[in-house]
Amino acid sequence: MKPFTRLDGLVAPLDRANVDTDAIIPKQFLKSIKRSGFGPNAFDEWRYLDRGEPGKPNHDRPLNPDFVLNQARYQGASVLLARENFGCGSSREHAPWALEDYGFRVIIAPSFADIFFNNCFKNGILPIVLPAETVDRLFRETAAVEGYALTVDLAGQTLTTPTGDVIPFEVDPERKHRLLNGLDDIGITLQYVDKVRAYEARRKGEAPWLFA
């Protein structure tokens, strides 16, 4: 996994609640058996005016001028500002794959759906939960100031606004450690092989049918 330490990133606002993973990456793209290349189809149904299909080139498709991420001022954004319950719905990890491939490394929202939140950490994306009022303020400032960017420091657990305001955020110590160092979960778990085997041996005695 890509480590995440620090980022100076342009902020793009997506001002709607309950953005679901079907919207982040529509179902037809889930037919891919690969893990990459989903970025051009992130938010496909909102972003383009025609229907996207796997394998169809995206560069000449008509863009929806009303979709916020299509505005010139948000091109190159790497911080996504979102509303409550971001990433709800399907467990598809294609959603963080698509966001990461699009260029987002940080997502800020008042709340996230559990599975999506978890999937972000597996893909080098930092989801940050902030109080609704703080998120409101960031929406206002992003709208008001073209080129609004945040400095995200994972080690120090802070966001810094262009005017130098520092906003602290919480992150799970274990997740932080793994993200900072780009550690692979499977590699970590395999250090506990003996414990897993001991657990299995004990359970086989208590409940042998579990292993049938």
């Binding site: 990890e93 978890n118 999937n119 799970d172 979960d185 778990t189």
Partner: peptide, 22 residues
Amino acid sequence: FGIGTSEVEHVLATQCLWQKKS
């Protein structure tokens, strides 16, 4: 509970998952 694809690989490889209690 549902899991993402990285976790599908993790369970296949280790029979375990990292979780925080809800």
